[in-house]
Amino acid sequence: MVERSVAECVWRDLGRIEYGAALELQRELVERRKRDEIGDQLLFVEHPHVITLGRNGKREHLLGGEGIAFYETDRGGDITYHGPGQLVGYPIVDLKLWKRDVVKYLRAMEEVLIGALGEFGLEGEREAGMTGVWVRGAKVAAIGVHISRWVTSHGFALNVTTDLRYFQHIVPCGLTRPVTSMERLLGGDPGWERVRDAVARQFGRVFEREMSEVEVLCQT
């Protein structure tokens, strides 16, 4: 076993990978995290078009979208869409070493995203009873989490330059509220890498972790 500081979190950008492959990778990392073989991780990915349904989700919230991949999955929350231009983050974090509180974890993740949006001059907000991050009443980031023995998987999806028309195929999270993207809010593309770096930085700040980037040489 490698010695490491609790306060360290490794992050990497896996680029565009299939939802199923990311799921497999998360499962493997969660098991390794439980065995304490690895420390906390933050994975960034971009998925090809996919619609995923949480355990609480209602399949009826899928309104169409023929030809888009569909997964029923074990995260919390209802239905959501992932696709190009969306920054998806999967923290694999042991909450036993943090606060042992899933609600605080959700709020902290919102805090991370609000902080990152703030770096671009956007005022992210919470809405009571509706987990996620909102800007001027429109949802810019969705959150859904799975916990197994206090180790987290799944995470958040922040619309950077997402083509929002794809959300028409679903009732996102069962809510009939508008969705938006940073690109739409800013009137231009803020840059994937700049947003990703901001989120990693804010993650370190909120969770009090020292973030170190790992170059991905080959994907599993």
Binding site: N56, R75, G76, V102, L106, H146
Partner: peptide
Amino acid sequence: KWFKKVGDRIEKDEPLFEISTDKVDTE
């Protein structure tokens, strides 16, 4: 979700059921 049914054998720490609170599913 219940991962086991009545009458099933179970080991300590083996996932038994899944709960959901807000946006979090927990085994």
